[in-house]
Design a protein around this nucleic acid. Structure first.
Lengths: 132, 132
DNA sequence: CACTTTTTTAGAATCGTTATAAACTAGAAA
DNA sequence: TTTCTAGTTTATAACGATTCTAAAAAAGTG
């Protein structure tokens, strides 16, 4: 398994559940956006496997902390995650409530002209809301 | 009362509660960020007044729909609103969990170089995360 | 005042997320 | 292997923000 080492190197034990979640998250051609519920359903369907919702929460948060997933800053009742951890942005289609990636290269360079006392910029994220 | 007309013109009846909420929200020198709970507490303290939490929710949503308030897209368990409805952006201090305004003029022009089929851009919002 | 519609309200319901504590598992050491 | 320990999984309870409900109150109209 290609994920065993990756997990070990992160200080995460490669458990059956984590490896399965890795498969669903990272064994895909394209990156994608998901909520915890989306993911739990996908695992159950795709792997015909019951997995505790608590484990999905735990794992997603562990992976996020390690930088394998990103949270998408958006107002919704559910939290959205992204398997695309590269520097990029999002469209949000207000009508269909769907997210679409917007690569950093598809946005002109962003200059932040204001500084905050002892703080450093960790990330700059753009959300473009779409309407019909 | 200066807000009576404003409310009437929006098709909202100028009730005692709405006028009081207007006072707390808009009778300030500076704009500010708040959650529903922040606001409810502020009203109770500042106006020595009990007001139903449900009314605060109703009113804030009504005001948002009318464009007197903006929701701030950020991941938090609570929804943040802004009395600053001008085109602007935000810093988010990850450590202190505080929001700071970032005026549009303090960000270089943002060019969105990707188009989505039949959709129009409604807004472009930047979130700058800060760390120490 | 009489009447209709909107609004407020307390409390219940909902639902995403987190906490709990017991059972289980991985890894290491003997 | 066997034993041990810390890390993990799990079902379920708890939590908390938000929404719903339905009845009472207030606003607007004639």
């Amino acid at each position: 398994m290609k994920y065993i080492e990756k997990l070990r190197n992160s200080g995460l034990r490669p458990t059956k559940q984590r490896l399965q979640i890795c498969e669903v998250l990272f064994d895909t051609e394209k990156t994608f956006h998901f909520t915890i519920n989306d993911l739990a359903n996908k695992i159950r369907k795709q792997l015909n496997n019951k997995i505790s919702l608590a484990t999905v929460y735990n794992t997603v948060h562990a992976f996020e902390k390690k930088g394998y997933l990103k949270q998408i800053p958006i107002n919704s009742n559910q939290t959205y995650f992204d398997t695309n951890v590269s520097d990029h942005h999002h469209f949000y289609d207000l009508k269909d409530e769907k997210l679409i990636d917007l690569e950093a290269s598809e946005v002109g360079p962003i200059k932040i002209l204001k500084q905050i006392n002892g703080k450093k910029i960790k990330s700059v994220e753009v959300l473009v809301k779409l309407e019909d």
